[in-house]
Design a protein around this nucleic acid. Structure first.
Lengths: 141, 141
DNA sequence: ATCTAATTGCAATTAAGTCTCAATTTCAGT
DNA sequence: ACTGAAATTGAGACTTAATTGCAATTAGAT
């Protein structure tokens, strides 16, 4: 698993340690696809063989975001939503206001547009997130 | 003030009442420009002649969002950030990771792109928010 | 002016996420 | 494999934004 190596290198480079708990969180994150909330992740970990406290789950999640293996997709009224990123190229999201479904898409034009907009505003863009809200195929009237 | 009329009509249409507190919140929201957090709004209201409890501020803010006079710009780790929208056309945001400055921009191309993307995915887009993160002019190295 | 449903303020509550710290564990050096 | 310094853990207390329940109050239609 490439993501383990990435994580180990990241930790090593910062003088941090690869613990059972961190390994458990990482492998749980990569054990399923799609988006997740921290509490959901925590409940999955409790249910799995391994274990990690809530504090460790949150702490590890921050590290995973920092090293780029996990990304915060958006915030709902409830809290953060994440996704793992290794093996997934950059994309943006459409979120259905009715059923909450999250649809991913990628647009080359959008990538170019970001550069254009940044240049025009003397801004050094490092990332963007486009979130389109509306109704998905199933929920349109 | 057009926004008062809009709010009054909105409330009337739902059988809700236009109270002093709601009026106070609305006029405070429109008394300055730029982005704000609910707690900042609440502190301004306490400082002004009128008054409204924290609960009323939050409750009114929801109503203002519902009727389109206020929009939630983004969520930080701390909480929501809003802006008033009457007299402001649609725009998106660049947020500086260093100093937190929020820069507004509008791109016609982006508007068209949204329609294109939605069509391609059988999604009925009602709104979008593009957030570009990076370093502003002042904070670039 | 009256009446009823909506609204208010307060304080209690919720919930996500963070922090503290004693006990434990990792791992580099031997 | 052993050791020790430094990092990490778990449990629960804590923080902070935001919501809620309820008795008292108020808007506004009639």
């Amino acid at each position: 698993m490439m993501e383990n190596i990435i994580f180990r290198n990241f930790l090593g480079g910062k003088g941090l340690k690869l613990t059972k708990e961190r390994t458990a969180v990482l492998s749980e994150v990569y054990s399923f696809h799609g988006h997740f909330e921290p509490e959901y992740l925590y409940s999955r970990i409790k249910g799995s063989g391994s274990k990690a406290s809530r504090a460790s789950v949150y702490r590890t999640l921050s590290l995973l975001v920092e090293c780029g293996l996990v990304k915060r997709v958006t915030r709902t009224d409830k809290g953060n939503i994440y996704e793992h990123t290794y093996g997934h190229s950059h994309h943006d999201h459409m979120i259905c206001d009715i059923c909450g479904e999250i649809i991913e898409f990628f647009s080359e034009k959008l990538e170019k547009l970001q550069d254009e907009i940044c240049e025009k505003n003397s801004f050094i863009g490092s990332s963007h997130a486009l979130e389109i809200r509306g109704r998905c195929k199933k929920c349109r009237m």
